[in-house]
Design a protein around this nucleic acid. Structure first.
Lengths: 347, 347
DNA sequence: GTTGGCACTCGGGATCGGTGAGTGCCAGTC
DNA sequence: GACTGGCACTCACCGATCCCGAGTGCCAAC
C-alpha cells in the first residue's frame, strides 16, 4: 500500500530529525524538512497511526513526537541504510591504530578511537581466554609456598595468577622442581586451545613424575578455574566523559547507574553476550534488562578471526543514549572491529 | 588573643557545617549548632574579618558564607584533627583486602574499597617500575622479527612489550638464540633495581657473545625506554559514579573535564606527583592547576615500604569536591595505604 | 568587646498571562 | 477513499512580578 509505505518514511524522518535536533518533532517541521509530498495534516494522520502502533509517543499533549524503543528498533531493523564511513574517518582509524605493538596498546587505542569517532562511550573486551591458545607458560617462585604463573596466549594476552602450592618434599636432589614444572607445563600446553585445557590436565596428572604431582595439581587447578570463571573476561572502557554531552538531557535518570554498570564490567559483558564478527548487534533501551541501561543503547560486534566464520575473539561496542546515530555508530563499530581483527591476526 | 582564637573556631565550624549540609552557613545557624558562647552578631563580626582575609566568601549578598580554597587549606593544615576510623571501617578494610592474591587483585580491590569508604573517586597507581627490582624476564618469540618480552617485578607487576629485532644470522648451529638471550638477560638483571638497568645494559653489551649483540641491544633499548617514560606509570580508577552524588551541585562546571582528566591518567599522576608514605598530601581546588580539577580536591599518599623511610612504591588517593570531609578522607587514605603496603610486603 | 535591634538586600519559589508549536477533528475537494 | 485546509484547543515554556525569609551590615547601648 502506498500510504503504508509513506508512514514508514514518516517514521524514518522522525527518527532522523529527533536524533539530530533532540527536539520532539512536529508535523509541520517534518513536512518542511523532508520532501514527503503531502501536507502536515496528512502527516498528522500518519503520526496518529504510528503512535497507535507504539512506534512513537508524545512527551506531553501538544508537543511533537519522539520515537519509542520500538520505533528505534524498527528503524534499525528495517529503515536504516548503511552509512559508509567518510574517507577522513577511515584515515583516522588507520592513523590511530597503526604503530600499536602489544595487545594492551591495540586495545587502549581502539577504545579511545571508537569513543572519539562516535562521541560516545566505547568498550572493548580482551580476547577471550577460552578461545585463545597457549603460547607460553612461565612459572616463577615467589616464596616457599607460592608460585606466580604467567600465561601468554597467541592473542598476546598476558595473565598472571598466584598459586599456593604444597611443599615439595620428595624432590630428587640436584634438580629444580620449578624448572621441571615449567618444562612439563610448556610441553603439555603450548599450542593447545585453552578450551581443551581440561583434558590436557588429566593427561598431565597421569604422566607427571610423582614428586611433581602436587605442584601440577595446584597449578592446573588454577588454570582451569581461570578459564571457567566468566568473570575473567576483562573489559576496557573509554570516553565516559561523553556521557555528559548534552547536559543531563540524554540520560533521563541520573547517569549514576550507568557509570556503575560500566565499572561493574560483568554487566556490560553480559549485555554484549555472544558476539559474532561481522554481525552488528544493537540493543535498545529497555531491551537491556538492567537498571541504568534502560535509557541507553549498546551497539556491539565481535572482532577477530578476520573474514572467517569463526567465533569472535572478543567483542567491542559503543554505549550511548537511545537517541543515537545508529547507522553511523554501526558503521564505525564494524569498521573498527574489522581493522582490529586484522591487526591481531598479523601479530 | 582570645577573639582571634574564636575566629578560628568559627572558621572550623563553617567548614564542618558546610561540608555536612552543603548549604551556605549563616551566623544564626552557626550560633545554634555550635557552642561558641557568643551571639550571632558577634559571629557576624568574626565572619566579616574572615571574609576580609579571604578564608570565606558569600555566593551572593545576603546568603551565608562558604569556605574558599584558602579556607579549606587553613582548615586542613591547622584546624582539623585526625579522625580515627571506626571499628566497622577497619574491619571493612581487612575483609575487603584479605584474600587478594596477585597484584591486580590487590589494586582493584583497594580502589573499590577506597571509593566505597570515602564515597568519592579513588585512584591507585601501579608500583613504579623504576623502584622495583626484576624478579624474572621472559622472552617469547612471536615471529622471525618480533619478540615478546615479559618483565616480572618483585612487586608482582607484570609488564609486556613487543620488541622488533634484527634477524639473527650468525648464530652457531644447534643453539636457540632466544633461549640464550633469556638466560643472559636473567643472569644480568634478576635482583637488580630497575633504576640501575641502564648500567647493567652497558655491561651486558660488552660481555654478550657476538651473535647475540643485536638481540641484546634491541631488547635493552626497549627496557630502558620503558623505564624512562613517565607515562609507564599506570593508574587504576574507581568509583566515578560517586561524582554524580549530590546531582550537579558539587562540581560547578560540568564534570566532563574531570572525567576526561581521570581517563587521561597522566594528568592525575602528575597531580599526585611525589608521594611519601605516611605523609598525606592534600591539594585543594585551584591548587590543582588543571582544567576540571579546579573544583576538586585530591587527597593522596604513598604506599609501600611499610614503616621505613624509603620512597613509596606508588601513590593512591581520593578525588572529590573541594567540599569534602577532609579528616575522614585523610584517615581512610592513610589506613588503606598502610594496609596495602603490608599486603605487598608479604608477597 | 559584645549584644540586641533594625533596615536593607537579594536569591528562590510561587504565581500568572502570553505565546506559539503542536494536535485532533471535521468538512470540503480531488 | 485519500488528502487538505481550517479551526478550536491544549499545554510547555518563558518572562515578569511578587513575596518571603535568611542573612547581612551598621549602630547605639550595655
Amino acid at each position: 500500500m502506498a500510504h503504508e509505505d509513506r508512514r514508514l518514511q514518516v517514521l524514518r524522518a522522525i527518527v532522523q530529525d529527533y536524533v539530530s535536533t533532540n527536539d520532539p518533532v512536529g508535523s509541520k517541521a517534518l513536512a518542511a524538512r523532508h520532501d514527503l509530498g503531502v501536507s502536515p495534516a496528512t502527516i498528522r494522520n500518519d503520526m496518529a497511526v504510528l503512535e497507535e502502533e507504539g512506534y512513537i509517543t508524545q512527551p506531553h499533549t501538544s508537543a511533537g513526537r519522539v520515537p519509542t524503543d520500538k520505533g528505534y528498533r524498527f528503524f534499525v531493523d528495517r529503515l536504516s541504510q548503511v552509512k559508509p564511513l567518510s574517507v577522513a574517518e577511515r584515515r583516522a582509524i588507520e592513523r590511530f591504530l597503526d604503530g600499536a605493538l602489544d595487545l594492551d596498546d591495540v586495545l587502549s587505542r581502539t577504545v579511545r578511537l571508537l569513543a572519539q569517532l562516535t562521541r560516545n562511550v566505547a568498550v572493548i573486551q580482551y580476547p577471550t581466554l577460552s578461545r585463545s591458545a597457549v603460547r607460553h607458560l612461565e612459572v616463577v617462585q615467589l616464596a616457599a609456598n607460592r608460585l606466580l604463573v604467567v600465561l601468554i596466549t597467541d592473542t598476546g594476552r598476558v595473565e598472571q595468577r598466584v598459586v599456593e602450592i604444597p611443599p615439595v618434599t620428595d624432590a630428587p636432589a640436584g634438580v629444580d622442581p620449578v624448572a621441571e614444572l615449567r618444562t612439563l607445563l610448556n610441553a603439555a600446553f603450548v599450542g593447545a586451545k585453552l578450551a581443551e585445557a581440561g583434558v590436557k590436565v588429566a593427561d598431565l596428572l597421569d604422566t607427571a613424575p610423582a614428586h611433581l604431582r602436587g605442584l601440577v595439581a595446584a597449578v592446573s587447578a588454577t588454570l582451569v578455574e581461570t578459564l571457567a570463571e566468566p568473570g575473567e573476561d576483562r573489559l576496557l572502557v573509554g570516553g565516559t566523559a561523553n556521557l555528559t554531552r548534552g547536559g543531563a538531557l540524554d540520560f533521563p535518570g541520573t547517569l549514576r547507574p550507568l557509570l556503575e554498570a560500566l565499572e561493574e564490567q560483568v554487566v556490560v559483558l553480559r549485555l554484549m553476550g555472544e558476539v559474532d564478527p561481522g554481525h552488528v548487534l544493537v540493543r535498545i533501551g529497555e531491551e537491556n534488562a538492567h537498571e541504568g541501561f534502560t535509557g541507553a543503547s549498546l551497539v556491539s560486534v565481535g572482532y577477530g578471526s578476520a573474514g572467517s566464520a569463526d567465533l569472535a575473539l572478543g567483542g567491542l561496542g559503543v554505549v550511548g543514549p537511545t537517541r543515537m546515530d545508529y547507522p553511523g555508530t554501526m558503521a564505525a563499530v564494524r569498521a573498527v572491529a574489522r581493522y582490529v581483527g586484522q591487526l591481531l591476526a598479523e601479530s
